[in-house]
Design a protein around this nucleic acid. Structure first.
Lengths: 341, 341
DNA sequence: CTGTTAGCGCTTTCAA
DNA sequence: TTGAAAGCGCTAACAG
């Protein structure tokens, strides 16, 4: 077939030649920086169309000193939580006619630095960090931030709060637990996540218990990794404790764990919510299709991503970032049962 | 703070000046094209480190005529299916030290052309299409394919098969249905997806029924949009037919629909699999945590994405693409019950 | 209004 | 081995 054509190599100069004008005139008709004679303009447009000319954004970027790209490093691509944050990010970025360069990372600090460095080598105009743990040393972060705007979502980094968009984790953990308490539950277990923010959720849980004058049983606080799989296994462990500590409700640090735990319950022949009540965290899209539909603390997942990109652009435009923390909302569905007398 | 530093503006020339050599020598020490005097090399590396120099990949790309970026347009970012395909894509791309520029698209042809054009303007070295429907006119596709390698995942485009990576949809639909038939089910409903590939699944279903000498009831074939929500609604509709057409099993065109439908069943007080058996399609990560765990036809989701990127690079290196179609595997879990006498 | 001329940061001849 | 110079495709003064 078209043996010749390697890449799209039509340049402004080609168009100019074809239209019989100078290359700068072609540039002008495309970016409208200056008025161009209507006739020539038409000629140029025609030539461009015939040649199938496409402006080389990369070259433009070189001279303009910006790339119109945002580097986003995310912990996962395929998870319900991060996937939907990303969806918000992408939409927000698109509105500004920028493009996201997405890389996964976040497992180790090494990996994070690596990711940022390569992104910086591509001269991204801004950085978005979607993570759930400490990504990197504060010094490094501040250094990068001094020349390239950066916003982090999903985790609050001490000393870097201005750049972080999070959710009121402590309050939400407190509220979730309080909801259970209000329904009459007195022995409540907790499946904690591994991340610092999840620990805040756990602290909320503990304090809610204490404030209500209830006992906090350390054995009833298990730590898992946010996955269904581990929650399932932890669930079995927890269920074995039930003879001794007959808990009637469980608060899990995210919905995926609620789902995994719910299966463990099913295996033990325990009914939700008749035998044990369940409350999750996140409100991922599938939460409302769990059977029964999951009562959970809703984070504005998509919104988190969308807002992050908006804030990032605001910083790119020269504004100072400021800390943001979204409220979390209790979504009552069908996994919490009142056991009030 | 660091008021001065706008962007990372250290260039090779800066490093050269600092090291007392010419800019070309700096270039050479960084890309090793030519031997450089070890002493100078050291000086240069030191200067680069002090200045915190980062090669400008964009500028490199300009002269080398490539960007080391892959444009990927995906139907969704947050869905369990596309999210995991993307995960594979990202990993595959990363291995080649390329970067993905991700945009969502695929709703309309307009949108697709728009997406491709902007990606092409950024001179991506290859294009990956993650879709589930006809993305665009064949002519256009072939035209861009003539200068920029392109691979499409998840949908087979007539006349463009060489560039498509799919799954044996017809065979899988057939196998899913056959599995149900083997378990003694004779009246089987189907929730079809909207995409052409889903229609192939449906055709497999129909033929399996016919080959087994079973009746195909058109009323039992409903079309939904791959979401839990619509499947839930369709489920209610289907369940109303149950008096007349007492189906004992349902095959849904993806797992999300199985999950939505399963909730509808729950609402009607119907048990899975005691009252109705269920088989899904995809094996998304959460399928095994449905209660009960979902029997489904497993697509190699992550693999699809990973392979797609590998094939794309092979094409970028000059090889010709060829059609690929992965087999689908039956994963027996707990939603199909034998009703054999 | 428009052509000419500098670069943007880098790779790659071409001589020395 | 290394510096000078040209050029990747484009924008932006600067004179006309």
């Amino acid at each position: 077939m078209a043996k010749s054509s390697k890449k799209n190599n039509v340049t402004m100069t080609d168009v100019a030649r074809r239209a019989g004008v100078s290359q700068s005139t072609v540039s002008r008709t495309f970016n409208g920086s200056n008025a161009v004679d209507p006739e020539k303009k038409e000629l140029i447009l025609a030539a461009a169309a015939e040649l199938n000319y496409r402006p080389n954004v990369i070259a433009q970027g070189l001279v303009m000193g910006k790339t119109s790209t945002i580097g986003v490093v995310t912990r996962y691509l395929g998870s319900p939580f991060f996937g939907n944050v990303l969806e918000g990010v992408e939409h927000g970025i698109k509105e500004h006619k920028f493009f996201p360069i997405v890389v996964t990372g976040g497992a180790t600090q090494q990996e994070n630095i690596q990711a940022i460095e390569t992104l910086l080598s591509r001269r991204v105009d801004g950085l978005l960090f979607l993570i759930n743990d400490d990504p990197i040393g504060l010094d490094y972060l501040q250094d990068v931030s001094s020349h390239t705007p950066i916003i982090v979502v999903g985790h609050e980094i001490a000393g870097f709060e201005d750049h972080c968009i999070t959710v009121k984790n402590y309050e939400a953990g407190y509220a979730a637990t309080q909801h259970l308490i209000k329904k009459g539950h007195t022995i409540i277990a907790h499946l904690a996540g591994p991340a610092p923010d999840a620990l805040r959720r756990r602290d909320g849980y503990i304090n809610a218990l204490q404030d209500a004058g209830l006992t906090v049983y350390p054995e009833l606080i298990l730590k898992a990794d946010f996955s269904e799989a581990e929650a399932y296994m932890m669930g079995e462990e927890l269920l074995n404790l039930r003879q001794k500590l007959p808990f009637t409700a469980v608060f899990t640090s995210n919905d995926q764990m609620a789902i995994g735990f719910r299966l463990a319950l099913h295996r033990y022949g325990l009914s939700v919510p008749d035998d044990v009540s369940l409350i999750g965290f996140d409100d991922i899209p599938s939460a409302k299709y769990m059977t029964p539909p999951l009562t959970t603390m809703r984070q504005p997942i998509y919104q988190l991503g969308y807002t992050a990109s908006q804030v990032l652009f605001s910083v790119i435009e020269g504004n100072s970032p400021r800390p943001m923390s979204f409220p979390v909302e209790l979504i009552e569905r069908e996994t919490v049962k009142s056991i009030l007398p």
